[in-house]
Design a protein around this nucleic acid. Structure first.
Lengths: 150, 150
DNA sequence: ATCAAAAGTGGACATTGTCCACTAAATGAT
DNA sequence: ATCATTTAGTGGACAATGTCCACTTTTGAT
């Protein structure tokens, strides 16, 4: 891999990091902290969740996660359901209020994407989309190789 | 923009955010906090800097920036040079130690990129690179339009 | 039955980030 | 030239975020 390509990739990473930072800062207008939003989204997309799964998938400290969950429960957005098989874990689910809030978060996120890219003509948009798919495909390949070699 | 495309873009954003998070967590083994590293990189790439420029470009609170700079100065990585034209500002420059440290940061970042993508065959790598360039090009277009319309 | 590992919790603490008020210098209007 | 306004930077006080460690309960393996 030559110098120029590395520089380009890093440039892209910085640029994209900034863009996502802007997006996230808008999402945060919804009253969640960044981490709370991640937790809500993860649970919303993947219900029910187990705290420890979230710890792994979101890379958050165990005890911190415990507090985040406690807070979200106290806010009436989540509840814990006892697991039948393993009494150490609780199954985390969204309450109705939590679902509404998640839906709102989701809507705002969609809206933000639309606003961000609305100025791109359809063809340009499709090219960008294709480029994103291409990159994800490469990341998939990398992960598959990692599975082989580790 | 249809639902599926929005979902794909958001999926890409999440995925890429995670990847960058992993990259960053490795960069942070170098003793800097994430924000300190950003500041060092920005100054290293763009010397001399003015604190207020950094506040804008990195989106960091003024007073927080002031403290970060004070810390980096205390660590012997930065120094302030009085500006001739405007006596309110100082020009921030890397000391020799700062340059060495920046170089180290830079080397590690390059190394990380290489490691991350080393399993991709050259042709795949080139495709990914092209896809990144394509996306940046679209972001450029958006920014140019914003300039027009704002 | 015993023991190591896993899930979760809480205390204590460190780091990181934010808000506000303030000073000093520069800029602009009159 | 003077004075109000804006800009760059600083510090105090504080809030939010994240980390480390010790501990309890439960599970699973031997």
């Amino acid at each position: 891999m030559d110098k120029a390509m590395i520089a380009d990739i890093r440039h892209f990473n910085r640029r994209y990091t900034n863009m996502i930072g802007v997006l996230n800062s808008h999402v945060l207008d919804s009253g969640y902290s960044f981490t709370e939003a991640r937790v809500m989204i993860e649970i919303g997309m993947n219900e029910p969740c187990i705290a420890n799964m979230l710890v792994d998938s979101l890379n958050i400290d165990r005890s911190y996660m415990s507090r985040i969950i406690r807070r979200l429960v106290k806010l009436g957005l989540l509840y814990k359901e006892a697991s039948a098989e393993d009494q150490r874990v609780s199954l985390l689910r969204l309450t109705d209020a939590g679902k509404a809030s998640y839906q709102d978060l989701d809507d705002r996120s969609n809206e933000l994407i639309i606003r961000l890219f609305r100025a791109l003509p359809p063809h340009e948009l499709e090219e960008m989309h294709a480029a994103m798919q291409k990159i994800e495909q490469k990341l998939d390949q990398l992960e598959r190789r990692d599975d082989d070699t580790i």
